[in-house]
């Protein structure tokens, strides 16, 4: 099979799960939930329109492009492959994702990259509040601004923001951009199709003060 076009219905995911390779275009998603979830093969999937919740969730190996907006939890728990949203994403984009690349060309709402565990996320616009909450690993790049409490209770993920940050969450601090960070950021931007100057970005990460109890906390 080289390519096929299917109109969104309840059988779409079953059809996709039978394929080992090839490209598929899904039309008329009409905001339906769980479009193209659980893929586990190197498919090229294009979704023409706006999706509901959990689009391309749990993705492995496939490259999914959404030409429209995505609802709550796009690419949640992605393991590998890529998901590109040519539009805006609702809250919890890339939540808990372990790997792969998530690109959102527009804005992402609250809790983008919440509990991310290794995914790379590049957002063309701005992100909402509580993004990268409890982020454990991976990289989050934001070409616009970040909302309140960025990186609250962050572990070891690296965050790069070009614009303003409304406020930093607990234990999240600005850090120096060393040569390896410039190189890493340039590479991530290039993968997403952007060529910004990494010097315009600030890196944020964990102050590592929540890893252990402070000696002053005892009673």
């Amino acid at each position: 099979m080289d390519s096929m076009t299917i109109v969104m219905d309840k059988g779409v995911n079953r059809t996709l799960h039978r394929l080992d390779a090839g490209s598929v275009t899904i039309t008329e998603p009409n905001g339906k939930h769980s479009v193209a979830v659980g893929l586990n093969a190197p498919l090229q999937v294009s979704i023409e329109g706006h999706c509901g919740y959990y689009a391309a969730g749990m993705n492995q190996l496939a490259d999914v492009v959404i030409n429209g907006n995505a609802g709550v939890g796009v690419a949640e728990n992605m393991m590998s492959g890529s998901v590109r949203v040519n539009g805006n994403a609702s809250q919890s984009a890339g939540a808990t994702a372990h790997g792969g690349l998530l690109v959102i060309t527009g804005d992402a709402a609250a809790r983008c990259g919440i509990s991310m565990k290794g995914v790379d996320i590049v957002v063309g616009g701005s992100i909402g509040h509580m993004s990268a909450f409890m982020a454990q690993a991976g990289r989050l790049v934001v070409r616009g601004d970040a909302g309140e409490a960025l990186g609250d209770s962050i572990y070891e993920a690296r965050l790069y923001v070009r614009g303003k940050v409304a406020s930093l969450g607990a234990d999240c601090i600005a850090k120096d951009m060393r040569d390896e960070h410039h190189a890493e950021l340039r590479s991530l931007l290039a993968k997403a199709g952007y060529d910004d100057d990494p010097a315009d970005y600030t890196r944020y990460g964990s102050a590592r003060q929540l890893y252990h109890f402070h000696a002053g906390n005892e009673y």
């Binding site: 009409n30 905001g31 339906k32 706006h50 509901g52 919740y53 907006n69 609802g71």
Partner: peptide, 11 residues
Amino acid sequence: VAMASEYRALV
């Protein structure tokens, strides 16, 4: 002007 809990209600 329309508002909904989810986009699918606006389709």
